[in-house]
């Protein structure tokens, strides 16, 4: 079992975490947003091979954070909660 470093709790088993989406996928705002823009937000993913930045949530402590990891090797680079110190591997 892989251990993920929660920025608040430290190393915890992967089963305590949920994937929450691609980092940087910002929800469109305003009344003039086009259908194409909404479709991009809802359906289009970059699906990178290699280094990726993702939003994860540690379900037990409810910490939402950014995880940088490699989608091929599963190696973790860092986890960070915006506004708090980075937890580097």
């Amino acid at each position: 079992m892989q251990l993920f470093p929660c920025p608040f709790c430290g190393p915890r088993p992967e089963t305590e975490f949920h994937y929450n989406g691609e980092a940087g996928n910002i929800r469109p705002d305003g009344a003039q947003v086009s259908a194409e823009c909404w479709a991009g937000y809802l359906y289009e993913r970059s699906n990178p091979k290699g280094a990726a930045r993702e939003i994860w949530v540690h379900a037990t402590c409810q910490e939402f954070f950014v995880m940088e990891r490699d989608t091929v090797t599963h190696q973790l680079a860092a986890t960070q909660t915006p506004g708090f110190a980075e937890h580097a591997e």
Binding site: C6, F8, P11, R12, P13, E16, C61
Partner: peptide, 16 residues
């Protein structure tokens, strides 16, 4: 019950 190391400090007592 859990892979969490009981000897290592962890800020939250909430776990599986």
């Amino acid at each position: 019950a859990t892979p969490v190391d009981p000897g290592a400090a962890s800020a939250s007592a909430s776990l599986v």
